[in-house]
Design a protein around this nucleic acid. Structure first.
Lengths: 174, 174
DNA sequence: AGATGTAAGGTTATAGTGTAACATATTCCC
DNA sequence: GGGAATATGTTACACTATAACCTTACATCT
């Protein structure tokens, strides 16, 4: 699991990518499903950053990489496979997809989404999960799945924001 | 606030509608914003049921009601206004809109969404809210807003499901 | 290796959701 | 009533996603 601080600041992102690909290969192998080169390529593209990417952005990246035309169904089918296997998540409020750092553990989709730098990081929080389970039970509701999307500012963007405000103040005073 | 049980079973839904319209009128009056007849009409259409409705469904209902053509911007602008004033919520996983039963209280968008009957009901749960606030704080994340969408089965659809299973069993034995 | 069945990907067309940009009408306030 | 601001009408288009059908690649058996 990546921390918010790491994802939002400079880090050796190559490790994130290779870890994700390796984990995916092993997982698909164990499950007897096929991580074809197209699917692996899409997974790698999704992992190019910690920012959720739209299907059409991925489609363009694919087309760029292969110098041939790529149609929507191609990328959507790969995305469907990756979603199915839990290798990526979909962020509904953004119509965008992001790599899952812990695909071996079944879990719900909980995200912190920075409105400054667009980075989205998964949250693994027992209290939230328990609160949701309890609330559903109290309402007599049988829980199947749930998603939580939390919007705000990551630490570095908060700093950035304060600096901008200081700069503005300074400019105003000058 | 409506309970799940009420929304999912038979009730005098006229009260839900008239309550919502009256609350909206008063709220808009207090805020000095204009609940025009179009906006009120869209709000009333949204409240035709406890099921979230898509923008194009609402557009068709509007066209039906007025016997003239209605274009997308018309309904989207009304929806934007109603969202802005907190009179409706958007359910991202469904691309759909639903009336807010408590528009005077500022709150986050938390929903129980029944996969059987499509009814969606707002949740107002202190534990969930607190857990989200705590989790964000622990990550150094400045919280702006968040949405929670919980999928599953409401009590009546659970019963329905069990009956179907019993029926199937019965048929198989016969 | 060749036959055959299944899964994956290619291709075309279209459905569904949402907005930009500009014109017209309505309302508010003086 | 005049003029500004707000709201709505209208056209066109962008973005997101899927249906349907065909071809290719792979896996397995003989």
């Amino acid at each position: 699991m990546y921390t918010l601080a790491k994802a939002c600041s400079h880090h050796n992102h190559g490790h994130c990518i290779s870890d994700a690909i390796n984990a995916a290969r092993q997982l698909c192998d164990e499950r007897g499903v096929r991580l074809t080169s197209l699917r692996e390529q899409v997974l790698e593209l999704v992992w190019q950053s910690h920012k959720p990417l739209g299907a059409y952005t991925l489609m363009d990246m694919l087309a760029q990489a292969s110098t041939r035309r790529v149609a929507p169904p191609t990328v959507y089918r790969a995305l469907d496979f990756l979603l199915e296997e839990g290798l990526i998540h979909r962020i509904n409020s953004l119509n965008a997809y992001i790599g899952c750092p812990s695909p071996t553990q079944k879990h719900q989709s909980h995200f912190l989404i920075c409105q400054g730098c667009s980075v989205a990081v998964e949250l693994d929080n027992t209290q939230i999960n328990q609160a949701v389970v309890d609330a559903a039970a109290a309402a007599g509701f049988t829980l199947a799945s749930h998603t939580i999307e939390i919007n705000g500012l990551c630490p570095s963007c908060q700093q950035q924001g304060s600096q901008n405000e200081s700069a503005k103040l300074g400019a105003a005073q000058a």
